[in-house]
Deep mutational scan, measured.
Amino acid sequence: MIFPGATVRVTNVDDTYYRFEGLVQRVSDGKAAVLFENGNWDKLVTFRLSELEAVK
């Protein structure tokens, strides 16, 4: 189960963010908004829950 605050990895091989890890900001309607941070940039991207896996 994916909840806000969880760290997730993108599993969709066709996505630009494949294998990126980010922090879930919100979850609704089968989608999750994931925040990616890297140095001087932040990006908030929405994914279907089926495209994400929780990082242990």
Rank of each mutant, 00 (worst) to 15 (best):
K31L: 13
G39M: 09
N38C: 13
T46R: 04
R9D: 01
K56I: 14
R9W: 10
F3H: 10
S28I: 10
A33C: 11
G5P: 01
S50L: 07
E37K: 15
I2M: 04
R9Q: 07
G30C: 07
V55L: 08
T7V: 13
S50E: 14
F3Y: 12
V27A: 03
G22D: 00
R48V: 08
R26V: 12
V34T: 01
N38A: 11
G5H: 02
Y17N: 05
P4E: 09
F3W: 09
F3K: 11
E51I: 04
F3T: 10
L49P: 03
R26K: 12
D42M: 15
D42W: 15
F36I: 09
V10H: 01
Q25W: 11
V13A: 11
L44H: 05
N12R: 11
K43C: 13
G5W: 03
D15W: 03
G30T: 05
A33T: 15
L44I: 13
R9P: 02
D42Y: 15
D15H: 15
S50P: 05
E37A: 13
W41E: 13
T16W: 11
V8G: 00
L49Q: 04
T46K: 04
E53Q: 09
Y18W: 06
F47P: 00
D15K: 05
A32K: 00
K31R: 11
T46M: 11
R9T: 07
D29W: 07
K56Q: 13
L44M: 08
V8N: 01
V55W: 05
K43H: 10
R48M: 13
E37R: 15
G22Y: 02
G30D: 08
M1D: 14
T16H: 12
F36L: 10
A32T: 02
F20S: 08
T11Q: 05
K43L: 13
D29M: 08
T16Q: 14
E53H: 06
K56L: 13
V24H: 00
N40L: 11
E51A: 07
D42H: 15
K43S: 10
I2V: 06
S28C: 14
L52W: 02
I2N: 01
L49R: 01
R19C: 11
P4S: 06
Y18R: 02
V24Q: 00
L52E: 01
V10K: 00
A32V: 10
K43F: 12
